[in-house]
Write a protein that binds this DNA or RNA. Structure first.
Lengths: 209, 209
DNA sequence: GAGAAAAGTCGACCGTGGTCGGTTTTTTTT
DNA sequence: AAAAAAAACCGACCACGGTCGACTTTTCTC
């Protein structure tokens, strides 16, 4: 029978991810060893490496699920006609809530997403691209409503807000922002700053008069 | 003779850092083991852990030197009366040049600085604070010259630009920005965006009319 | 200066992530 | 259906970061 291999492969892959899902959330990322994963998934340790390039790539598979979840939540629970600021906060605070519930897990995830190793560059970019796909339509809408300049590269705008989100989460990991409210406020401040601009006036050149 | 202990401690600490300096830049961070470090420093492996909480803390000691270097360079080679944009680019591009010369090293450093583990939170914050001390005076000056709004928390402004710097470097690690010029341009774009603002008009409330 | 206390040193030891060559299972070729 | 090729599987093995309790050196106390 043809396709036996494909079926088994998919089954094994799923088994690994299920084991990861369980063990990571049960014991945390760092406290879950590859051997644990293999044992729980009912396969040999070495086999895992035919499915994933390393432990961190298993993490990224999660990251993808996580993003999918957050983006579904955004679709279901956030008013699509709210202001751009509101929409952005809904999205990123959803993301943050997940991270704050799994801090060690989230840290490793973010480290891998923001400063990927060669090994995981590709997957990181895939996830990144999904972010872009999620945000760009929001920006387009905001442009139509006059909330966002129309002369900007939307990829750079995405980067801009994503950067501020990262910085806020960093502030939380550093202990500068302690509660979820702190984070929400910090993020809102930064987003507003970005929207209104840091320079005092608009329109003129940045050079001397 | 009193003080013998103190002297030896300092000597040992220095020996470790010197060994780290040499081996990290010679073989890279990941390829340098704690045993290597110990051997080169002429001490036992376990001893290192009475001086540093872990491998990553040794890295942060470097980070501090690195920041000191960059800030000296900024003082010596960058026109203190240049525009805020120029000054920021001089600072962060100096930082980036170091990273681009030691990518693996820089990655671990950034990971630790932006998403620190409990172990290194404190040291990360110290370094962070030095960044703030470096930037805030620049912002004050810019405010006097009318280049920067005067109604902002300068810590948030620092965070804002630092965030954009991080994002640019991230873009480089992800392979979206390939050359130093790409990075310089990307960073300048983002900084300009931040200064001029993403929203089309200034002054009004962000809410519905 | 002798003895006790404190601080510093050390390398064998632990569990980890990841590798490797040999083995089994599936697919392709004849 | 037999043989050959390819792919998947495995666990012993490696070097690593980090720990630990036994040991040495310095300091304190009398």
């Amino acid at each position: 029978m043809i396709g036996t291999r494909e079926k088994k492969k998919l089954a094994t892959r799923t088994a690994i991810l299920e084991a990861a899902m369980r063990l990571f959330t049960e014991k945390g990322y760092d406290n879950t060893s590859i051997s644990d994963l293999a044992r729980t998934a009912g396969i040999g340790k070495g086999t895992i490496y035919t499915y994933f390039a390393g432990k961190s790539e298993i993490l990224l598979a999660f990251c993808e699920q996580q993003l999918a979840f957050v983006s579904r939540e955004l679709r279901d629970k956030s008013d699509p006609d709210a202001s751009l600021l509101r929409r952005l906060l809904d999205l990123f605070m959803g993301e943050f809530r997940f991270i704050s519930k799994n801090p060690e897990f989230g840290r490793t995830m973010l480290r891998e997403m923001v400063f990927p190793k060669e090994m995981t560059v590709e997957r990181s970019r895939e996830i990144d691209d999904k972010y872009i796909d999620l945000l760009v339509p929001m920006f387009r809408k905001a442009q139509k409503r006059g909330e966002l300049r129309t002369d900007l590269e939307l990829i750079l705008v995405t980067g801009h807000f994503y950067a501020l989100y990262i910085m806020t989460v960093s502030g939380w990991y550093m202990g500068r922002l302690k509660t979820e409210e702190d984070v929400a406020m910090g993020m809102e401040f930064l987003f507003q700053q970005a929207l209104s601009g840091l320079a005092p006036a608009r329109g003129g050149e940045m050079t001397e008069p």
